[in-house]
């Protein structure tokens, strides 16, 4: 689990208000909020890419500030939003880089490393692409490669910044199910999502942010109301249950237009 104790952070132009948040093991938490509300900054603070200006980020009982970089990377994996594609590197090689914190500094892979890499590729449906150069893949395939790399890192805490970017709907759903499964296996999963309905459908908890502050946290059904969406996104919506899962789905209203189906 990962726990933020009164953590504040920021850059010259943007500040995160002090927040105390817990992300328990075995749960999938979705961070949602409008563009520029600080979701990615929050992930950066949690992964120590940005040092907090106040408060502590605790991994279990340990303050992340005191962990060596490789020790931290063994316990916490991060999928950033932007990932550079090295030229001339194949899928299996790139996913293999995820093993770096478990290997020596020279990067010698053991049989166990190769097995973890194979499993990660299998879970993202990449085995058939193993020997393709990553640069020759489509955007969605690349995204799956980078998710597999984070998975190969095999850390108990996994943070994903907009993992469904670039993906078609089939792979969006597969990736979200994968994150839910990772949480069910006992990991702590935190994922930044843009699609509120998807977040409500797959996440156990939502953390809603606006302008650097956490506005609400809790189970999707309790948190996601029309009032909250109006307050956070400045958008008039009705919230309907998802016909399959019963989770809340915000549906925007069109000004000057009547609905054609009466609410159930």
């Amino acid at each position: 689990m990962i726990h933020l104790e009164a953590v504040a952070a920021g850059y010259r132009t943007f500040r995160l208000a002090p927040a105390t948040l817990s992300f328990p093991a075995g749960t999938l938490t979705a961070l949602i909020g409008p563009n520029g509300c600080g979701k990615s900054t929050m992930l950066k603070v949690m992964s120590r890419q940005l040092r907090p200006s106040a408060g502590r980020v605790m991994l279990g009982e340990e303050d992340t500030a005191g962990l060596a970089p490789r020790a931290l990377a063994r316990r916490l994996a991060l999928l950033p939003q932007e990932n550079a594609v090295p030229p001339g590197v194949t899928v299996v090689e790139l996913v293999g880089y995820g093993r770096a914190p478990h290997q020596n500094l020279l990067g010698m892979q053991t049989g166990a490393d190769r097995e973890k890499v194979r499993q990660a590729m299998d879970r993202l449906d990449l085995l058939a692409l193993a020997d393709r150069e990553v640069g020759t893949l489509s955007g969605g395939q690349r995204q799956r490669v980078f998710i597999a790399m984070a998975l190969a890192q095999d850390a108990p805490v996994m943070l994903f910044d907009e993992p469904t970017n670039w993906l078609d709907i089939q792979h969006q759903v597969e990736v979200l199910r994968l994150m839910r499964d990772l949480a069910r296996e006992g990991r702590t999963c935190v994922v930044v999502l843009h699609d509120i309905a998807q977040a409500a459908r797959y996440a156990d908890r939502l953390v809603v942010m606006k302008a650097g502050s956490v506005i609400a946290t809790g189970a999707p059904k309790a948190v996601l109301t029309a009032d909250l969406v109006r307050q956070v996104y400045n958008l008039q919506v009705e919230v309907h249950p998802d016909p399959v899962t019963g989770t809340p789905v915000p549906v925007p209203l069109e000004p000057g237009r009547d609905r054609c189906v009466e609410p159930v």
């Binding site: 970089p69 950033p80 590197v89 500094l105």
Partner: peptide
């Protein structure tokens, strides 16, 4: 030559490399 793997990781960009434990 000894640092070749570290160079592999650097190529992934600062954020990704840091997430893999690179100083």
């Amino acid at each position: 030559l000894l640092m070749s793997f570290r160079l592999d990781l650097q190529y992934l960009g600062p954020q990704r490399a840091a997430a893999l434990g690179v100083r």
